[in-house]
Structure formats: structure tokens, C-alpha cells
Design a binder for these strands. Structure first.
Length: 592
RNA sequence: CGGGAUGUAGCGCAGCUUGGUAGCGCAUCUGACUGGGGGUCAGGAGGCCGUAGGUUCAAAUCCUAUCAUCCCGACCA
């Protein structure tokens, strides 16, 4: 590709609304361009990298015998009503109507379509197991798109679905995808971590998230170096802390004026926050968004409530709950805002963190203005309608498995795998016949990769102050030939010669033959992040060039042929990213 | 959806307080010089100042509404 005949409009300054370095660089390098909030177009270079990532995904899916198909982006509402997700998915589901007023959606994910496909196209145990996938644009009407490609309303996703006869077979299918994902993200050059994750609205029993480590990720990861535990904050179990045994005291009402927070109260009463009970009040709604229940949740004063766990405990969709109006809720249930305790409440669901069950002599709100209660004991003074783990694991807390302090990092969720179990096959009647002609629902799994998000995650991990540093496997081009002075015939002749040799060998080459100052060309080459740069300059008359890798500073003067050979050798080594497999386990490498 | 901010040329910004002919840098076009890390000089083109109302002799500037975009939060297979 010759730049004199192509369009490459790099920007010296990033748009002011970009926050992340990766976002700024992708825009400046002319690889993405925003059309509206969370909607992007991809100019030539960006689109090439998108397709490189897709190709890696495709190769690894094909390797595990997953079959590529393509579903329409527009789905009839009926399928979504059949599984109930028409309501359960909430406002993020992008709904549209046709001219006759029929409801459709733009698919955010495709469990319904693939399950529907399975029940129509497949019928016999002889056809099992099977797995199918697609790579297509997905749509989610996000309340707040942000951070470039990390959270968009239109994005490219690979979604795969597996169908098996038994739970054991599902596990096999799940692990195949899991291992394929390890290879995919490794080949993309990502530094990632695999963590246990919550299933969320997709449902099912087990899930892992593949998270590219980054301080800017939206995924909170807690992990333990001692035992290998790793989970998202939403999912991470906690260990209930035992308190030193003590005699139960009588409850005692104390005045706590002007104490608005747990810290205020505990400071005023001179007790540790771990001896207090924190209250959080909620209102739940039904599928038609009509008010349903009041909920009062209680955790130890020094803990944080985990909303995902609460929502799971209540068995409702996450968007069907919000903080309650305390005045309104007080009238119905007896709570008093700022002084809410678990005693004597009515007309509400009381959810108590399991850790509180063994505590005695706690401090809790007295449900009276300006008063708290001391000596509060579980069982004697209050009980929960639901008692379970609803607290958040935080950095430094005891690992739920081994008790060592856990560590914290952020990550960009680039992929997630789910064991769905029978959820969709049963609700949609997707069954196969066994040897005796008897019907059984499929054991299903689903597996997603955010392709466009992965692209930005790669930039987030591979850049410097000059620009992007693409790994060879996803670089839009492998080599850029920078001609210092295009008016010089020797230079142009040598550059064309190198271009031809590289392209004949299969490399993708940019020839920067623009009539620009060399500084402009060098800066552009750095910005767009092409892995290998060959500079043709004043030594062209002697047949010599400079060879430089984007990722390091070293500059070598070589003959043109040496440079060509060197570029081809490096490209052969790194073009598909498999040279990075050295970091993977035998189990992963052998998984097929 | 709650809180905050911003909309002026492709990008980055000034002008608004105190109303009076719409400006700067980069990019772009012409020409010349230049040629190893975002050049120099000269000349040119490009804007319904987000949109709609209002106040005023006069509005980018003041008022109201609305839309859009971004940030924090909530939410997020």
C-alpha cells in the first residue's frame, strides 16, 4: 500500500473528549472515528486490525471444530418473549418496530436464536455434540457508552454456543472454549487473567471472565497468589470473620445526635466499625416495573454490600432494584433514615449477611431519630428472611479458600465463557432424541469475545508516548518503508525493490512515498505502530537502509537484502502470535 | 436515570464577565525554498458560533427551552 495513493489522516492532537490513552491513540492514528455516542466507524487501518483479531478468533474456533454461521442482526420479539428476556434484559435491549408495528430487537447476544436454530435443525443424539459461532455486530443501548471501544452501543462480538447430551459433555465443551480463549488472547499479545465471574442476566451455573489487565478496566479482580483463587468482585466469595466470644448483653438504647455515617456513630460511641451493623434500603420492581417489595439489607459496618450478590439472593434482574426513598419506605416498614436497624421491621424483606449470624452485642440503628441500639444479637433481637453472603471481597481481606490476604487489580473484560445448563433448552423446548427415541434438553454453553474491545485492550497494553506498538499478529501492516526523500531516484528505486521482495514473501507493506518531511513520516510510522520500519535514505546509493523495530530503540544499518531477510524472518516467527504460546500450559496446548 | 461540565472551521482552542463586522494554532489549497524526528516564507479557501424561541436598534455573547457530547454515580451477556 502506497501512502501517496491512500488516505491516512493522522491527528497531532487527540479529541478532547477522549480519556484513555488507547482511545486517544486509536483516534489519532486514524483507526477509529466516533459517529455518535458509542457508535464508531473504522477507517482502513483500524478495520484491518479488527479483521486480524477476528481471524485469530476464527482460526482457534475452527481448530476446536466450532462451525461458523451467520445470524441476522434483527430478531423478532417473540423469541425473546419466549424466554422472558424481552422483560428481563431491561432497557439495554435495543427494540425497534417495523412499519406494521411488529416488535423486533437488534441482538445484544444470541442465545435465543441459536437455541431456536438447534431445535429446528438438530434432533438426534447422533449429531451431538455440536458447537456453532458467529462474528457479527451486536447492539446494546448502553446508558453510558464510554472509553472509546471499551463500552459501545454497537460492537463486534464473537459468540459461540455449544450443545451437549450431558453435564459432563458440557464441561468438556466448556473447557475446549476456555483453552481456545487462552490461545486467542495470547496470540493477540494480551496480558490477561482468567477469573471466576458472575453469570448475570445470561443465567446458568458457571462462568469465567478473561480480563486484560489494565488500571482503566471496568472489571474489578480479586486474586490470591497463595492458592490461585481469582474472581471478579461481583462473584468473589468472602470468608465470614469470627469475632471473639463474649457474653450476650441486654439491648441498650443510646442517643447518637448528628451521627450521619457508620464512622460518626462508631467514633461517637468509641467502638470499632466491625461491631456495628450497616443498613441499606431498596425498592424492587416487577417485570412491568411496578413497585414490588421493600428490601432492607444488613452487613457488618466495615463491609461493603455487593449488589450482584444481593440481586442474586433476591432472584430478580439487576435493573429491577433501586435505592428506596427512605421517608416513603419508613412509613411502610418502620425504618428511620440514617438510624435503620434490623429490629422490628415490617412489610419488607430482610436480607442479612451470613457473617452477622454469629455476632453478638452489635451496634445498629434503633429505628428512632438520633438513636442507636447497643447489644444487638442475631437470633435473639432480629433474624433475616434471607441469610447469605452479600458482602464484597476487598483488597487485603482473607482469601475465601486459604485465608491469605487477597490482592486487587482492574481488568478489561475481553471474553467470558458460560455454562448455561438447561436454562434455554428447557424454556424453549430444544431437545434431541436419545437411542430410545426419548427427548432430552441440550446442555448448553455460550462463549463471547468482544473483538473491538480486544483491539483497544491491546493498544492499552502496547503503546508508548509516541503511539501504538502493535504486536505483529494484529498489526494493520507488518512493515513500513519510509522514504526520506522521494525526489531522490535511488531512494525510490530501492524502496520499490524492497516493497516487492517483502510482498512477494507474503508480508503486508506500507510504502511511505508521500512528499513529506522525514519527521512527519517517522512520527506517523510510530503513531500507527507498524512493527518493522525500514528507512530508505541517503545510503540508498550504496544499497543500504536502516532497520528498526517499533518496540525498541535500536537502529541497524544493513544492506537492503539483509533488511528484507531480517524482516521476513521476524514476520515468520511472529505473524500469527503463536510464538507466545510458550507461556501456556501443556493442558491448554493439547486441548483440541 | 441522578449529579457536573461543554457545544465557535476537519482537530485543538480564544472570544462570552461588560452585546456592536468571528479569531488563533495545526490540518487543507497555490507557489517557492527545504529535506534524517511533526520545516520556512508568501498567498488562498473554509464557520447559520448545536438547534429553536425570547430580550434588544443590535446576540457567539443575556434569558428560556431543547438536542448532542463528555465526566462522576447508578446500571452494564
Amino acid at each position: 500500500m502506497r501512502l501517496s495513493k491512500a488516505h491516512l489522516k493522522t491527528l497531532r492532537e487527540a479529541p478532547s473528549d477522549a480519556v484513555l490513552e488507547s482511545h486517544k491513540l486509536l483516534v489519532r492514528a486514524n483507526m477509529i472515528k466516533q459517529e455518535s455516542a458509542g457508535i464508531y466507524m473504522f477507517p482502513k487501518l483500524g478495520w484491518r486490525t479488527v479483521r486480524k483479531v477476528e481471524q485469530i478468533v476464527r482460526e482457534e474456533m475452527d481448530y476446536i471444530d466450532c462451525q461458523e454461521i451467520h445470524m441476522p442482526h434483527v430478531n423478532p420479539a417473540e423469541l425473546w418473549q419466549e424466554t422472558g428476556r424481552w422483560y428481563a434484559y431491561g432497557p439495554e435491549l435495543w427494540r425497534i418496530q417495523d412499519r406494521a408495528g411488529n416488535d423486533f430487537i437488534l441482538n445484544p447476544t444470541c442465545e435465543e436464536m441459536f437455541t431456536d436454530f438447534a431445535r429446528k435443525e438438530y434432533s438426534s443424539y447422533k449429531e451431538l455434540p455440536f458447537s456453532i459461532y458467529q462474528i457479527q455486530f451486536k447492539y446494546r443501548d448502553e446508558a453510558r457508552p464510554r472509553y472509546g471501544l471499551l463500552r459501545t452501543r454497537e460492537f463486534i462480538m464473537k459468540d459461540a454456543y455449544t450443545f451437549d447430551a450431558t453435564e459432563e459433555d458440557l464441561h468438556t465443551a466448556y473447557m475446549r472454549q476456555y483453552h481456545a480463549y487462552e490461545k486467542i488472547f495470547t496470540r493477540c499479545g494480551l496480558d490477561f487473567r482468567i477469573v471466576e465471574a458472575d453469570n448475570g442476566p445470561i443465567g446458568g451455573s458457571k462462568s469465567h471472565e478473561f480480563s486484560a489487565l489494565s488500571d482503566w478496566g471496568e472489571s474489578d479482580i480479586l486474586y490470591c497468589d497463595n492458592c490461585g483463587m481469582a474472581a471478579t468482585a461481583e462473584r468473589a466469595e468472602t470468608r465470614d470473620e469470627k469475632q471473639a466470644p463474649e457474653e450476650m448483653k441486654e439491648m441498650e438504647l443510646v442517643k447518637t445526635p448528628d451521627c450521619k455515617t457508620i464512622e460518626d456513630v462508631c467514633a461517637f460511641l468509641k467502638i470499632p466499625t466491625a461491631k456495628s451493623i450497616k443498613a441499606l434500603m431498596f425498592r424492587t420492581y416487577d417485570d412491568e416495573m411496578q413497585p414490588k417489595d421493600y428490601v432492607a439489607a444488613f452487613v457488618r459496618g466495615d463491609r461493603q454490600l455487593n449488589m450482584t450478590k444481593l440481586v442474586n439472593a433476591l432472584n430478580i434482574p439487576a435493573h429491577n432494584i433501586e435505592f428506596a426513598d427512605e421517608v416513603e419506605m419508613g412509613a411502610a416498614t418502620g425504618i428511620v433514615g440514617g438510624f435503620t436497624g434490623p429490629m422490628g421491621l415490617k412489610n419488607c424483606i430482610i436480607v442479612v449477611d451470613s457473617e452477622l449470624v454469629d455476632t453478638v452485642n452489635m451496634c445498629a440503628g434503633a429505628n428512632q431519630e438520633d438513636h442507636h441500639m447497643l447489644g444487638v444479637c442475631y437470633g435473639r433481637d432480629y433474624t433475616g428472611d434471607i441469610v447469605t453472603d452479600i458482602k464484597e471481597l476487598q483488597e487485603g481481606d482473607a482469601c475465601p479458600h486459604c485465608g491469605q490476604p487477597v490482592k486487587f487489580r482492574r481488568g478489561i473484560e475481553v471474553g467470558q465463557v458460560f455454562k448455561l445448563g438447561l436454562k434455554y433448552s428447557e424454556s424453549m423446548g430444544a431437545t434431541y432424541k436419545d437411542e430410545n427415541g426419548k427427548d432430552h434438553p441440550y446442555w448448553m454453553g455460550c462463549y463471547g469475545i468482544g473483538v473491538t474491545r480486544t483491539m483497544q485492550a491491546i493498544v492499552e497494553q502496547h503503546h508508548d508516548d509516541k503511539g501504538i506498538i502493535w504486536p505483529m499478529s494484529v498489526a494493520p501492516y507488518h512493515v513500513i518503508i519510509t522514504v526520506v526523500k522521494t525526489a531522490d531516484e535511488d531512494q525510490m528505486k530501492l524502496a520499490y525493490d524492497i516493497e516487492k521482495k517483502l510482498e512477494d514473501a507474503g508480508l503486508e507493506v506500507i510504502l511511505d512515498d508521500r512528499d513529506e518531511r522525514p519527521g512527519v513520516k517517522f512520527n506517523d510510522a510510530d503513531l500507527i505502530g507498524i512493527p518493522i520500519r525500514i528507512t530508505v535514505g541517503k545510503l540508498a546509493g550504496e544499497g543500504k537502509v536502516e532497520y528498526k523495530l517499533r518496540r525498541d530503540a535500536e537502529l541497524e544499518t544493513l544492506t537492503a537484502d539483509e533488511a528484507v531477510d531480517k524482516a521476513i524472518a521476524l514476520w515468520s516467527e511472529e505473524k500469527d502470535g503463536r510464538h507466545l504460546y510458550k507461556n501456556l500450559s501443556e493442558e491448554t496446548l493439547n486441548a483440541h
